[in-house]
Amino acid sequence: MGDIFSCCYATPENTPTRQLLGPGEQPPPYHDTFLTPAMMRHLTLSEEAQLRLAQRLALIQALPAGVYDGANTDYKRMECVICMTEFILGEPIRILPCMHFYHIPCIDPWLRRSFVCPSCLAPVDTALLSAISFQDNQVEDRNVEDISIHSRNDSLLLNTTPEVSALPF
């Protein structure tokens, strides 16, 4: 954990770069492993943005996932509309609340950028929140005002992720 954080705070001054290496010298494997271009981008994020990203990542992980079982292939071949490749039996897929599904490696990077379904543009989080509110409603019969306060609170939302993954979408 400590190593990851010191890596996150690396600055151009204390990060060895290829320009500083002698000919034929290899850079230390540590930085090659941890400072991927995606991570470099995150270095410039504010604390607030990092928190939002962490919340988003948790939400993405909370979305239902499964493997393609060919259940819909009776009438036509199904393809992932992001990569335009046909689904193969057993491929990992992620199912959004609107019931559109995609290959996990195709949809997850998109959801990190934009939390809407690429096909119908339905916001993913709103559907998730209403599902959570619905569940709360069943458990405690809260009034509407309570639920809307609950929905707006991102940290509460994060705490409820284990329940979210169990929701029957």
Partner: peptide
């Protein structure tokens, strides 16, 4: 146009870029 980096679905997303466009 790219959808905003931080929109959480509240900004109007319709008619913005989506990876299903060709």
């Amino acid at each position: 146009h790219e959808p905003g980096e931080d929109k959480f679905g509240y900004e109007k997303a319709s008619e913005r870029w989506s990876p299903v466009h060709t």
